[in-house]
Design a protein around this nucleic acid. Sequence first.
DNA 1: GAGCCGTGGAC
DNA 2: TGTCCAAGGCT
Length: 300
Amino acid sequence: MPEETFAAATIRWYEKNARDLPWRAPDVGAWAILVSEVMLQQTPVVRVLPAWRAWLDRWPTPAALAADTSAEAIRMWGRLGYPRRALRLWECAVAIVERHGGAVPTDLDALLALPGVGTYTARAVAAFAFGQRHPVVDTNVRRVVARAVAGEPDAGPATRPADLVATAALLPVEPAEAAKASAAFMELGALVCTAQAPRCIDCPLVERCAWRASGRTVPLGPTRRPQRYAGTDRQVRGLLLAVLRETTGPVARDRLDLVWADATQRARALASLIDDGLVERIDDRFALAGEMTGTATPQT
DNA sequence: GAGCCGTGGAC
DNA sequence: TGTCCAAGGCT
């Protein structure tokens, strides 16, 4: 009897230990899965759960979202963070309607061409929504593969082609099993093979983990310093956008002036929001982009 | 490819 | 208070 593969062992663990997340239910469609994947980009599951339900309750199809304004999408995004994702998701819905008749495309290249859909998300949708056999490589999978297979303490900072190749080599031949293996690797990285304090005692791969065998080496050299947040343009952007989210219609400039004392940084942050397409200027006032769509605008 | 882009919870 | 982190994408 051949030795159980990494995938088989992880799938067995997954069947018993996976979280009961609503976007994994069998009757969930591709749009709902796509929305979940975008929301989960850099945002924890517990915060995505209520936002995902509310979003799909309001916009159950790409066409429904595309028919609404980008401003409503940005507003509905609330405090999930990285609001450019909301704009991209709205643009994505528009593109799905325009290019694909309102149905989420099944082809990987067509998915990759959608706004806000990159290497990870395209493969996640192709695998989890359509059962295709693609390596789905996120930060969890990269960490699991780096440790268990390569024996390294952690993965590189971004997904590389080599990561896709290494993960593809682990996938079962049968597409549905391959998709399940990807979900299982992700879950293992999220629950057991965590960035900090991995729970190797609960790991189904511990017997054959290369990193474990090497004595759990510690990374060499200087670790990358995390990006700070307090006092940055990102914080100011967040404060500005919060005002616009909570207000319907344009806001006067002096109201935005209240959120941050430094006028230079404030102006820079506001300009970057406009540049990103999240905010629009109407005369000397400001609103979420698309706020005035469909509103009668007097022409001079 | 390094840096930028939000937010809130855990420690 | 400060650090680190959480299913990335884009330039």
